[in-house]
Design a protein around this nucleic acid. Structure first.
Lengths: 184, 184
DNA sequence: AAAATTATGTCAATAAGGCTGACATAATTT
DNA sequence: AAATTATGTCAGCCTTATTGACATAATTTT
């Protein structure tokens, strides 16, 4: 009988009083999708996490390896911009990947201060091994919901990204106007 | 002219050789959605992260607070199962939330070993404040892509979750067969 | 040519958030 | 009475991130 709306009003009475009504009963908040995103992303990342364990790597290594494979030749500064982390955070992870032969650094041809980052064959293979179970999970999910819904799902996920970052994503090969599939 | 397929075959020659072809050129992997999920989730979590900073809390606090608000009265063990973390990890975060008056612990009525977790008014308000910008981001994304696509997006995200966890999510208020919106 | 800026690397300290293992307590079940 | 269960706590460790400071080399500006 006593709703949490009532409880909230009574806050001054006893602020320690436990609220027994679940959040989402009175409010107009999209908790369903908030939670789906949380669980979906957690399980989505668990696939590569298991593989990485076997190499002594973590998620940070995965992200670096992924974008170096997707944008071969990108500089350290560009990678920092994509990942939005600090160079000190990147340093350790990148060093490990270079030392173990997954990534090579090549001095920039114009500006020799820059280090262009490329995957080695080893790095390409690991990147592929990490992406494969994730892609499989996505394929199954699309099958379950109808492959025709792909565009809607892409649109939604893209629209969830901060607007100023969207073009960056679209430029990756396979993105909407990305360089990569021209006929030479 | 020289593709990475060629390079890969030449691996024995020079394993350090940088691959200049982006991943996704030859492979049948859904890199587009993999990357969209990464960027979407990152920006999605950045909204509450900023608010949390002001309270001296982190993402761990957010998750605990969220599920206590969504499932008031859940026990510590149930919360651990939802979050899939260890009790030692939970302990510190939960203690802080209890000590600062966002969550209260109530001994279980049947089994007094259990601690039922409830939000206080303070905890409810913070939870709402954290969910609001996330919900706003989702609403905008749905508007951009057509609100009619909501079902497809929900279906996809749900299908990305490990099958054995899906029913758990559906049971939350607002889920597909969840208790919460009956007519009393 | 000298000075300023830029790209990168590195050292040191700090913090959040997770982990494992071990042990304690109280309450319940066997 | 003994075993199990739910929770809490201590201690130590790991990964990933942070900030600040400083070093080096290469480029750009003056």
């Amino acid at each position: 009988m006593e709703s949490d709306a009532t409880d909230m009003a009574n806050a001054t009475e006893n602020p320690e009083k436990p609220l027994r009504t679940p959040l989402g009963t009175d409010e107009d908040i999209d908790l369903r999708i908030i939670e789906l995103l949380f669980f979906a992303y957690r399980d989505f990342t668990s696939d590569p996490d298991e593989i990485l364990d076997g190499y002594g790597f973590g998620r940070a290594h995965h992200r670096v390896l992924h974008f170096v494979n997707r944008m071969p030749g990108l500089t350290v500064a560009e990678l920092l911009d994509v990942l939005k982390i600090t160079k000190q955070s990147l340093a350790r992870v990148l060093k490990q990947l270079v030392d173990t032969g997954y990534i090579v650094q090549v001095p920039g041809p114009q500006d020799r201060r820059q280090r262009e980052l490329y995957p080695t064959v080893r790095g390409r293979q690991l990147s592929l091994a990490l992406a494969t179970p994730q892609s499989r999970r996505i394929r199954r999910a699309l099958q379950e919901c109808g492959r025709s819904e792909r565009a809607a799902i892409e649109c939604f996920l893209r629209a969830m990204v901060n607007p100023d970052r969207r073009s960056q994503i679209d430029r990756l090969p396979g993105g909407r106007n990305g360089a990569g599939e021209e006929d030479e």
